[in-house]
Amino acid sequence: MTNLTVSRSTPASTIAMVALGTAIIILFAAPWWAGRSELRLLGEIFLYMSLATLWNFLAGYAGLVSVGQQAYVGLGGYMFFAATIFWGLSPLVALPIAALIGAAISAPVAALIFRLRGAYFAIGTWVVAEVFRLTFAQISALGGGSGTSLPVSVAQSLADGRDAREALTYWLALGIAVVVIGAVFAFLRSRRGVALMAIRDNELAAKSLGIDIWWTKFTVYVVTAGLTTLVGGLIFLQKLRISPDAAFSVNDSTAFVIFIVVIGGIGTLEGPILGTLVYFALRETLADYGTIYLIALGVVAIAIMLFAPKGLWGLIRGHRGTELFPLSRRVRGLTEKGQ
């Protein structure tokens, strides 16, 4: 017994963390080695990676299958516009403020929709997003139903010159992806994360072992909402224009995100990251073919659901439970015990 230890990292996860650190450094330097359109594409990848990680945190871990996360993406956009236009806040202050507002608003929303189960919960989240959309369409100071543009002065306050601005928004996107994935990773490694993974696997056993399921899910919902609002703020800082239909689009903010998580592998941290890369690879190679591209996405999704219900990462992970993010706890020294 004495020579047994419990370790959280594996050779694979150590290599992966080093590789990830290196990748972040190389990506940080992208404004010096990439062109403007590549920079934009990378920025978009980071934002989708963040949204996918968050949706997976909610649905894959907490079992809260939401089809209404566009509520917080749109809220983030509008809060960012309001904070910069009306309250005169600098964009870099407005983003975290928007995130806090999103988290605060999500708490009563959670208390309400948590009364719904299964499919009704999903419908409830969508209804909430529609209510948000209709509400913002009524606010004439933000352009009502037709929307509004970010004043040039706000965009200019970000940085001097177009290249510097593009670089800064790129870094913000990279930074947000790091913050989102880092936050979810830290949560999962904590004591609450242990509870959450137990809930993911078996709610009956989880509550019988002392886990407060409602509180755990509530925490996940609020954290996810706050971070989704943050991502939403940045999306509309990039777009420079917002309207209710664009802000609360179920297609852009939820449908593609669910696709990414399903093909990548739900209920793992690696899945949404892998899924985002696969999705963008498909999009960049097939997008010229118009509708064929959408049909191809559908075929891929169905094939994966049929043949690899745990997604591509599920295939790679296998029974041995290979992981890149060190979350598991492995007992070391068992072989020396003989038996």
């Binding site: 242990v194 137990a198 056993a205 019988s208 439970g321 598991s328 706890r329 492995r330």
Partner: peptide
């Protein structure tokens, strides 16, 4: 009612 995606130790 095991936690299926976790090890025995976990």
């Amino acid at each position: 009612q095991p936690f299926g995606a976790m090890t025995i130790f976990e």
